[in-house]
Design a binder for these strands. Structure first.
Lengths: 336, 336
DNA sequence: ATTGCCATTGGAACCGGTTCCATCTGCCGA
DNA sequence: TCGGCAGATGGAACCGGTTCCAATGGCAAT
């Protein structure tokens, strides 16, 4: 059995209060006594029981992260950012991975409880409206990363601008028929990013006096295979787009595949632009819109720690910019 | 303030012991009393304080996962497997991401303590010998995934066989000059996988009466860029290899890049085989050795739960097989 | 009617910390 | 010489569960 604080107290010939004071760096301990206690701690290989400490403090020293789809590199990058902040603190990071709709509901119902966690950080998932009240009232802060909601502090990416930049880049190159390919804009997980990117796409087109064509906007599941299919649909239209904006790099790989299958050469016959700038994008020489994935996690973690210290009265919003990264998959459209 | 068990007891007009028995499905409660208690629980929106429960039970209901480099898709896949098992239990999964040498030591020193966790699962990291004793004696089980150590239960991949299969495949195609490219075989993180794969490589060569050439075996950091460099070194040798076995798919992408740069066409001029079969491999049409990444995490999680229930006297070992996946980057060597 | 047993229940003690209050000591100033 | 105060210390009470023991009531057997 591990030693307890009372064992240490007995061994050092002092009271438990004194040991606790030494452990918590209270100044009200004489150097002599402190040394005695430290010696006893070393002799017994004592380390405090965090569970007891938490109960006594009335804090769980635990924060939960709800993240969807660890299969997505972008989510993992954000998670790394969060972890890097929390690992420097006393807080434990408990991970909840959401890959199905029922777990999604269940987590938002069961996780936010004062008795369980001191704070909650949600990555890329919109909280179900039915549980918003609980999230606001459970007693700890809720921070969103890569999702906007007026009730919560959040780190968001300026996806409208990102979509705008991507589309503007293509327009500037001379493209006028630009396809938009995303995964479901309104699945049960309520991603908002795609909708925003689409708005940026529309705005850029509008700035060039072009109306978005319904048949140029397609979406399917979040997978290369699905993107491959959807891109094939776009590229076999009688008047096919000369460029395709895919709302993430993974989808863009599906577009690349489809183009290859149709024997279109890049970037002469077709321009492709992705989104995220995940690691593979550089390898593929994919033009893309970079967003600060790791950084978004870091900022989210920081927001959360601040909010735990001093619950702010109104939600804060941090907006991270995007950056166009031009590589080899975009160029002027073919003559025709 | 959340309701406590005493609030519930008072509200229901029973004793705290009875409420506790209802919460824990003890049969020794009359239906009538049980209903009264359940009604009170609902009325007060009560949920038990897990921290208090843990202190009282003397269990932390927490398991720690130490994982290196969440940047690596293979590690994330294993982690997903672990999470999928633990999410169905009462245990919290606390994640520790190791990306630098000093955190590596620190985690193995500080995390395994009975007061903190009920069990520990380590992914792809060899425990430092200095801390093996602590890991064995801290009071909970330690399970390794993708790392072998005689003192601990583990889920390992048959990497010798994997390396053998990869090399044999190339030999069967007619290759005789086969390069071996890996990341550091003995960094401070002590990965063992690469060493095993190299042994498989040597064995396959030996079976064909070929000795491994020192100048055909290169290694650098775990990155595409580094692999690119190393592969360039191999491919500019006066007698260059006709095939390269890279010990993971990420490294293989670097080899692909180098080949492209040197204007070697695949698979005519050069064959390339990777390892892991991460998602990108399929897209790149990369021949590779598939290992059961997600499954290794699942089995590791299961081993851990079993070991917590009934500490087995001797370590168990689960060996997962690999599978050769032939795609488009391997073929017979050029005539010369 | 009495005894004994079982099912059910109440509640004290305990888990291992933190914190607050009471106590003690020593020193200073009056 | 004595009061008073500050600094140091001991230890009880508390956090919110679980568990065990004692108590109660009902019913069957004698």
């Amino acid at each position: 059995m591990p030693a307890t604080i009372r064992d240490v107290a007995r061994h050092a010939g002092v009271g438990v209060g004194t040991v606790s004071r030494v452990l918590n760096d209270s100044p009200a301990v004489s150097t002599q006594t402190r040394n005695k206690v430290l010696k006893a701690i070393a002799a017994l290989d004592y380390s405090p029981n965090v569970i007891a400490r938490r109960l006594s403090l009335g804090k769980t020293l635990t924060i939960a992260v709800i993240a969807p789809f660890l299969t997505r590199p972008s989510v993992v990058e954000r998670l790394r950012g969060v972890e890097s902040v929390l690992s420097q603190t006393e807080y434990d990071l408990v991970l909840h991975n959401v890959e199905s709709g029922n777990r999604y509901e269940a987590y938002f119902r069961d996780v936010p409880r004062r008795e369980r966690i001191d704070g909650l950080l949600v990555i890329s998932l919109r909280p179900p409206e039915a549980h918003v009240r609980r999230l606001r009232e459970y007693g700890g802060p809720t921070i969103l990363v890569d999702i906007a909601h007026p009730d919560f502090s959040r780190v968001v990416i300026d996806d409208v601008d990102g979509g705008y930049k991507a589309t503007k880049h293509l327009l500037d190159l001379g493209h006028r028929r630009i396809g938009f390919l995303s995964d479901f804009t309104d699945s049960s997980f309520h991603f908002t990013a795609n909708r925003d990117r689409f708005r940026g796409y529309e705005m850029a087109l509008a700035a060039f006096g072009i109306e978005a064509r319904a048949d140029y906007s397609v979406h399917g599941e979040h997978s290369r295979e699905s993107a491959h299919e959807q891109a094939t649909r776009l590229l076999t239209l009688s008047e096919r787009p000369t460029a395709i904006f895919a709302t993430c790099d993974t989808l863009a790989t599906g577009v690349l595949e489809a183009a290859q299958e149709l024997e279109l050469s890049l970037p002469e016959d077709l321009s492709i632009i992705g989104y995220d700038d995940i690691e593979i994008a550089e390898y593929l020489n994919l033009t893309t819109v970079r967003q600060q994935l790791f950084e978004s996690g870091v900022r989210g973690g920081e927001l959360l720690l601040e909010a735990i210290e001093s619950s702010p009265d109104s939600p804060r919003e941090i907006v991270l910019p995007t950056e166009l990264v031009v590589r080899a998959t975009t160029a002027a459209p073919p003559e025709c």
